[in-house]
Amino acid sequence: MMIETVKLTKSFKGKNVVDEINFYIDEGESVGLLGPNGAGKSTTISVISSLIKPSAGDVKLYGKSIIKNPAAIRKILGIVPQEIALYEELSAYENLKFFGEIYKVKRSVLEERIQEILDMVGLRERQKELVKTFSGGMKRRVNIGAALLHRPKIIILDEPTVGIDPQSRNHILETVQKLNKENGTTILYTSHYMEEVEQLCKRVYIMDHGKIVASGSKTELLNILSSEDTIKIHLNETSDDILKKIQQIESVRHVDETDDGIRIISKKGNNILSSLIHTVESQGAEITNYQIETPSLEDVFLHLTGRTLRD
């Protein structure tokens, strides 16, 4: 076990932002930390990386606490913060050089290392340009590059794809995948984009309100919903009354309105179609489309927390 947290708690003004969480990361693993905004992911990362001290509990690196000796984790850690932590008035090359210098990368290898990373993040051709002239996606790529100069054993990425174009997003995801598969770098990836975590991580921790509400591989998490069906229906007209009436159907566990229809989570095996048609028609509406979906991690999150990831 490379990193382990034991009843990790962090309070701000009497409120537990991180509440007695336990998790572990094995060496070479790619682990996702999933949760909506305000779930406590960034605070958890700050404590693990030794940036802030926990109010209670412990963080262990190879079984030894890092609370009193943060240097141990700092040596092998590369952190990609959520915000663009770069000097915008300097070029990509100058930024990487600065971070290489503060990480005490030997001068003889620094130049080679910078070019290698610029290749990896796809910015070699634009290395002399100022960061402030870059698009959001390019800035985020430099932001990641700055964490790789000292070849860390573990990289923590805090929502590295927020607000960027799909091309840059794909580039970042490929880079992270490459780091994990080809270099054996351990990854802790936080996001509120379910599909990213599904793509990158073998194991996932789901956080909400400062607690870990579920954990496991994708299959294990999906099994949580093995006793439920996700049904999506389209109506010719919708109202709050119809949603309330559907909710009252005996086997229905959850109803919510999404961008493309009404999502219903019900007990597996109960054929609720006839009840649904009856309920909808009693409200003067009609079902125009009906489909039973394979559950996704998004459905698991909804099931566990009662809200969607983007809430």
Binding site: L51, L77, I79, Y103, K104
Partner: peptide
């Protein structure tokens, strides 16, 4: 914060 997490 990045500097704090470095060896400097």
């Amino acid at each position: 914060d990045r500097m704090i997490l470095s060896p400097i």
